[in-house]
Design a binder for these strands. Structure first.
Length: 376
RNA sequence: GGGGAGAUACCGAAGCGGUCAAACGGGGCAGACUGUAAAUCUGUUGGCUUAGCCUUCGGAGGUUCGAAUCCUCCUCUCCCCA
């Protein structure tokens, strides 16, 4: 994997760059749609590619391992062949499930035993087999196995968890070196900074991760309920320590405003379920603010979903019609909203990149952050 | 024509003397959602000057300290038989 910095902003830490992978290039900053079980929920792969113009999507180790099972993915020839997405894929390691499924798992220094949310069966995840699974999935970017700590989190728990995540990282790096990609293209490991909301822990973790010399680095354990200012503060602190010549990935973030702030602090990659999940639940993100399309006020608004939107759904359907679909519980409603939201998120990061290159990112960002957070 | 059942809030439907402004569904309205156990979940749903008061359980009377609940009459609906 190669990362090339194209431009750095004068008035902020924002950067424009380009990542080259075995499945093509990614222009940064980038938003990566989440496709947990191998599908970006509700969206055809052709629309992810041609309408939304996504450059890379996510998959999830825990979920794909449980279903359809690593053997099926391997038989298919990897996730790219299985779902038909021929651009880069990044897989999360299951570290987020250590957090989100905390009621049904047991964490030790060795790894994590999960009880399947599907059938209750027990499954052992270690840094080593998580790498093996991701090798078989065939992700271009592989995430290290970590614990995403909850918020709030006691200092001692956060410190101990960070130490475990670091030790797991060492084992991931070793295991990456001892294994080979299965499908003929390079796979790159991203380590993950943890440390909850404690500055000293974040600093220590960022220094540790920086010292590993990986081709890209991630910031985890944020956007789990902490105040936005805290998230920005941690992001800024960590980005100041992580190497400048490697891409930085802020995991699980976020709202359009979160993403713009993240970019201004030097983040290059983002992913979040928000455009799809909130879309399925009737929330539309637009450059002028947030719409709850289920609200009564849209019932006879026959204007287009988003006059300035890039997706064909924006010009194909009206707000009143989309509201009707939600009211009638038609699945097309969630699909349209998801597609609109993803197209908007991709527009947002492309526009950010343009402004970084043009040199007026900071002032553009300050205006946009306010606009996109408004309630319409 | 004969026999039977019933009328409760936006709709369906419990309640069968006080703890009933009335369970529970649905619908309506609003909110939440951040490396997806989510096409899910939560709140709210008579009015008002809201620790209280006012008006509501088909209509009109009545019994009772007290009625959605008991009695009388009326109106309407549904089912069965002819």
């Amino acid at each position: 994997m190669i990362f090339e910095l194209k431009k750095t902003d004068d008035k902020s830490s924002a950067r424009a760059g380009e990542i080259t992978t075995g499945h093509g290039k990614i222009k940064t900053p980038i938003f990566m749609p989440v496709g947990t079980v191998g599908s970006v929920k509700g969206i055809h792969i052709s629309d992810v590619k041609n309408d939304i113009d996504a450059e890379i999507i996510l998959g999830n180790t825990y979920h794909l391992y449980l279903r359809p099972g690593t053997d099926i993915i391997e038989k298919a020839g990897g996730l790219h062949k299985f779902n038909g997405w021929d651009k880069p894929i990044l897989t999360d390691s299951g570290g987020y499930q250590v957090y989100s499924l905390s009621d049904t798992r047991k964490l030790t220094n060795e790894g994590v035993v999960f009880q399947s949310h599907i059938d209750g069966s027990r499954h052992n995840f270690t840094p080593e087999n998580v790498i093996d699974i991701q090798r078989k999935i065939g992700a271009d970017i592989i995430m290290a196995f970590d614990e995403c700590t909850p918020y709030p989190c006691e200092y001692n728990y956060a410190r101990n968890s960070m130490d475990i995540t670091h030790s797991w990282l060492d084992r991931c790096i070793t295991h990456m070196k001892n294994t080979e990609p299965l499908y003929g293209y390079e796979q790159t490991l991203f380590p993950i900074v943890q440390g909850s909301t404690y500055k000293d822990l974040r600093k220590k973790s960022a220094e540790y991760i920086a010292s590993c010399g990986a081709d890209g680095n991630a910031i985890g354990g944020l956007s789990v309920g902490e105040p936005h200012e805290m998230m920005y503060e941690m992001t800024e602190l960590v980005c100041g320590i992580l190497p400048k010549d490697k891409p930085r990935y802020l995991m699980g973030v976020g709202t359009p405003a979160n993403i713009l702030e993240g970019i201004s602090h030097g983040v290059d990659m983002f992913d979040c379920v928000m455009p799809t999940r909130n879309g399925r639940n009737g929330m539309l993100f637009t450059k002028n603010g947030i719409i709850n399309i289920k609200n009564e006020k849209w019932k006879d608004d026959f204007s287009l979903i988003d006059e300035e939107g890039d997706s064909y759904v924006d010009k194909q359907y009206t707000k009143a019609y989309l509201r009707h679909l939600f009211t009638a519980k038609e699945m097309l409603g969630g699909m349209i909203a998801s597609q609109h939201n993803l197209a908007f998120y991709l527009w947002l990061v492309r526009e950010a990149r343009k402004h970084i290159i043009d040199g007026d990112f900071a002032q553009w960002k300050n205006v946009m952050v306010k606009k996109v957070a408004q309630r319409l």
